[in-house]
Design a protein around this nucleic acid. Structure first.
Lengths: 215, 215
DNA sequence: GCAAATTAATGATTTATTCAAG
DNA sequence: CTTGAATAAATCATTAATTTGC
């Protein structure tokens, strides 16, 4: 059907360019007012109404997610395979090598396998522990939170930032479609974000609620 | 300061080479386990800890995005100039035409500038501090058609659409970074927070955080 | 050539926003 | 509607490049 009497919106290339630009720019769920403006703007390039804009964002968001999911699971699966291979390979090498030496082998540049923990996709795979970052560093103001936490973990890793920052958890995903969810209990090492009470000057001014209250 | 007693990490050329290689290879937000591996690997080439790796990826990602953003906004700006020219041209033609008819010329929609990065587009101009905001600026007063308000716009879309709109968030500034909030009355309608990213990055990190790190 | 001064890069922190589970 | 989790954006702070006057 020709665009002129189509029952549905036929976005022009300009429409798509601009919408995609906005999407990249972070717009996901524009509110009514934004939609109005966008629509007004886009109508310069061709027939369009608000609902088209609305639906476009809805669909685009959903479909990008979908694409991402598929891509990731594919990637991750392959990476896992790789990792497994690598592991076997290394084991093999080491077993042979260390029979006649006490050095440890230098790290192989690109043999680092960076499995992106596709655990939920392929349960039972190699790296079943995924990890998360938590922003809790303290460089100058070591807070007093150690006792609140898993002290054994703390002690064993000392000041090692990585261990502090990382909250290792079992692969059991929390935010995934139910079909992907694992029922296993989490083996979470608890680590709480630190909130220093020392308020720096700029914090006092920039995050002062009274200055920021809009409600 | 010599690297030995520096307060901050001084990446060696090898560090940078490897990190960049990984980045090119698609790593954006390594999880704890990945960071551990990377750190272990890199420490072969010089002092380094996990947080350095973590921050490096954070920063690198952000700054690549920034670069891209600037590039794009430049492009867009020039496109706009072009369009404006075009429009003036058209208008000119039409105005001549309307001398012998009773139609009125169409509103100058093109004067809507979908400007991004105000610092780039309007140096020293409106909202120059809001570098990452996209603003929807009319260089003159809004054409009459914009005075049509919500209701009339809504009505024309029928029940489905109305329902949709009603479910949408309130109009008005939703969640813009504080630095983008301006105190003075603007002739600028704040619209789009811009975070242009390349698709890969975007997919990997923005649209669904949980996907990225749990996967 | 060579420091002091200035500017650009980039490491490290903090804050704000988003998504979605409960 | 509230909240936990994640992370992008903004910002602060130090180091590296560079410019400048001698």
């Amino acid at each position: 059907m020709s665009p002129s009497n189509s029952t549905r919106w036929c976005p022009t290339p300009e429409h798509l360019m601009i919408l995609e630009e906005m999407y990249r720019g972070g717009i996901r769920t524009p509110n009514a007012s934004q939609i109005q403006k966008i629509t007004a703007h886009l109508s310069f390039y061709g027939k369009i109404e608000g609902k088209n804009v609305f639906y476009w964002f809805q669909n685009h968001k959903a479909r990008e997610r979908q694409k991402l999911r598929r891509k990731l699971s594919k990637q991750l699966y392959q990476q896992q395979l790789l990792q497994e291979q690598l592991c076997l390979h290394r084991r093999h090498n080491q077993e042979n090598k260390f029979l006649s030496s006490n050095e440890s082998p230098p790290p192989a540049l690109h043999q680092l396998s960076l499995g992106k923990s596709a655990d939920y996709l392929h349960p039972g795979g190699v790296g079943s522990a995924a990890a998360h970052m938590t922003s809790c560093t303290w460089k100058r103001d070591p807070p007093n939170m150690y006792e609140l936490q898993n002290t054994s973990m703390m002690r064993s890793y000392g000041d090692d930032w990585t261990m502090m920052m990382l909250k290792m958890r079992d692969a059991g995903p929390t935010h995934y479609p139910s079909c992907c969810r694992s029922n296993r209990p989490l083996k979470t090492l608890e680590l709480f974000p630190i909130t220093t009470q020392n308020v720096k000057d700029h914090q006092a001014t920039t995050s002062n609620p009274s200055l920021n209250s809009y409600s």
